[in-house]
Design a protein around this nucleic acid. Structure first.
Lengths: 210, 210
DNA sequence: TCTTAAAATCGATACGTTTCGTATCTATAT
DNA sequence: ATATAGATACGAAACGTATCGATTTTAAGA
């Protein structure tokens, strides 16, 4: 395998720990790491999370199973690592219009993404996380927390704008807005689409009371 | 095993199909069925969903693995069957006070239940359902739908009462209110407790806008 | 500077383990 | 005759580990 010229190009928080140690010994082959991540994502996309096995990734990448286990502690960690870069690229937070418009745009986009092929992958990761604490913690750390932080800022901006009441419970609001995605994706098996997201947004923004 | 005196006492939708057939042949042993369901629930409670294996249930119940597979199509179906009766008993829908008060009471109770030992079991069932369509459909049919129906009626009552606006999107409102439980339970790993449920309820009822 | 030993990586293969779900077989009840 | 129950064995996945040889890198000693 040819050597990549951009060493450490995207060392992830999950796998960078061991790479930092320096001393005698052969260096980690970045091309192999790349091939594994790529094969992992391709497997996720082709087979879904059900067919995502370490053996399949090993076969597709040309790497040995041993090599995968040396660098990723579990199936779930590898899945998240392989999936995250692509996902982040597709889910930006708009910051242009009013806070409520930005919120609606974000919810619409998220519904579009979660309603597609990424939705199945996320569902698989969360399912795996129920019997693997490290996986769900990694999902939280790398996928949820950054976005929740953005959501928090968005609502704060809306309060500063005068769009939202200053006494709202921001955490509860985020729970209501984003929790609905989990219910529909994981349990209720109802479709996620932008039109629904818009109705959800309107409902929470306006409230139920007269 | 002693014979139970209440045959068909709680024939479930999931397992009643085969029991209806009549003709020559030995009758199904209700005591065995009971012992399996009981052992299944005990296993769930003792080991969590991770340790919930058919073999463990067989060992605990004294029944053969074959017998279990004859009557339950999958692990998930058995888990739901064993868990549901107990769960239903603990999660009633109040219908006394105002609609918003009843809603809050229900959310508080649900948070209490989901924050306890049932929460882990539900999480396990939903996780299993992600790779087993029959399981998640059964969960939906027997656990979600009846409660969602009650939630719908509650909101309709609130509209008739004059407590809620007549133009609210009931489905979206239920998504927001109950979806939050799934997010916190399955992905965000944040505690579910009555105080939080109350804040959630207030937030959705009042809305975010000024 | 050159050599050499230690350390770490990678691929290949083989295991041991768990768990699922099925197949057989015998005995028993209707 | 037919369906049920229990016992046991079996095959198939897939996980994660162990072991081995070959290769690459670093550090220390001559």
């Amino acid at each position: 395998m040819a050597r990549t010229d951009t060493v450490e190009e995207e060392a992830t928080a999950a796998t960078a720990t061991a790479a930092a140690r320096r001393g005698p010994g052969r260096k980690r082959d970045e091309a192999t790491r790349h091939a594994i991540l790529r094969a992992a994502y391709e497997t996720l996309e082709a087979e879904g999370y059900g067919g995502f096995t370490i053996e399949a990734v090993a076969a597709r990448s040309g790497a040995a199973k041993t090599t995968i286990y040396r660098w990723w502690p579990s199936k779930g960690a590898l899945a998240i690592d392989s999936f995250l870069d692509l996902y982040q690229r597709e889910a930006p937070f708009p910051q242009t219009r009013s806070a409520s418009e930005d919120l609606k745009a974000n919810l619409r986009l998220m519904a579009k993404i979660w309603g597609g092929r990424y939705g199945c992958i996320i569902a698989g990761i969360i399912a795996a996380g129920q019997s693997d604490a490290a996986t769900i913690e990694l999902y939280n750390e790398r996928l949820v927390k950054p976005r929740r932080e953005e959501g928090l800022r968005l609502l704060q901006r809306g309060i500063a704008n005068g769009e939202f009441r200053p006494d709202i419970d921001i955490e509860a609001a985020l729970d209501a807005l984003y929790g609905a995605f989990y219910g529909r994706l994981l349990a209720w098996l109802e479709p996620l689409d932008p039109a629904w997201a818009e109705r959800l947004c309107d409902t929470v923004l306006r409230g139920l009371m007269v």
